[in-house]
Design a protein around this nucleic acid. Structure first.
Lengths: 168, 168
DNA sequence: AAATATAGGTTCCTTTTTAGAACTTGTCAA
DNA sequence: TTGACAAGTTCTAAAAAGGAACCTATATTT
């Protein structure tokens, strides 16, 4: 499978990875959520090569995750900002950070604390069901192939019966 | 910044990316959550080269995300299964899938539907605050640098005052 | 007994990506 | 006139990934 084919796969995860599926892209997005907006700021903070930074920013803009906003004319300068679509990646970033806080940090714990403005507490994210509001884990979910996708999925990514049952 | 340095960065996101920060690793984990366990099954479903698959499985085992479990002696064969730590990546996978369902799919919608076993409904994940239980978005969170990390963060990844305020 | 199949790799060589440094462009300030 | 700044582009070298063939231990088929 090639990079270019990823966003055509019959799988939403693969298609999302076509946009954010490399480490630089996710680190760029982390910085976006920290308020970083300018080419040279990304470059200095990340230690990324200009070549790759240009490429990733272009890709993020082309998928509508970031948009360019002029902050100066003559010479024209533009900064990169999170769109609404980009802001919706926040749960993903938060999930990755939270996992790292728990499983990858040393005795000092989380480097950055997330404060929930409305309750004022340091929080970590909990995933809930959109329908009943209950908190969920992997074991509370079963999967079903959507009818409209059945043929395509069976051809390219067949999924056996037991599905998530086999995790338990 | 090198791959090898990532898991030493003063940032939980960077450290998590040291484990899952490339597209193949996340696709392997997707298949794990679908119940795939064996080397050749991963290979066939993903179209990944054996070389890379070997490398990624080794890395996931070394970080404790997967563990090897013998399913046959003579010849000894082992399968790869999600550990408790690996299962805790479910919110991340679910977040990526949900974003793709919403922003990357065609008119047919989501290829795979997630059913919440206890309420029986097709669901998508909502991120809630662990402390007060309210649903949150990017704009409901502000960030604070943990005291113990202040010096290290200021040296390597200085964070300006406005933080998330600037997203709004 | 010999040939073939299977699972899970490893080796070798080629192509693609990334790193690292230097160069470019338009404008302003000293 | 020279230098600085932001946001790139271009060049070469190094690292990673792709692709195909080979390896090992055992079981099955001919």
């Amino acid at each position: 499978m090639r990079w270019e084919d990823l966003d055509q796969q019959p799988c939403s995860l693969a298609r999302t990875l076509a946009v954010v599926g490399d480490r630089w892209t996710l680190l760029i997005l982390r910085d976006c959520f920290l308020g970083v907006r300018r080419f040279d700021a990304f470059e200095q903070r990340l230690g990324i090569t200009r070549h790759v930074l240009t490429d990733r920013l272009k890709k993020l803009v082309s998928y509508g995750v970031l948009y360019k906003s002029p902050y100066q004319e003559r010479p024209r300068r533009e900064e990169y900002r999170l769109s609404e679509i980009g802001l919706e990646l926040h749960p993903v970033i938060l999930g990755l950070v939270s996992w790292g806080d728990k499983h990858m940090s040393d005795e000092r714990g989380a480097p950055i604390v997330h404060i929930h403005k409305s309750c004022g507490q340091p929080m970590h994210p909990i995933t809930h069901c959109s329908e009943c509001g209950e908190a969920i884990t992997a074991k509370d979910i079963k999967l079903k192939v959507a009818k409209k996708w059945q043929d395509e999925l069976n051809e390219f990514l067949p999924i056996k019966k037991p599905l998530l049952k086999s995790l338990l």
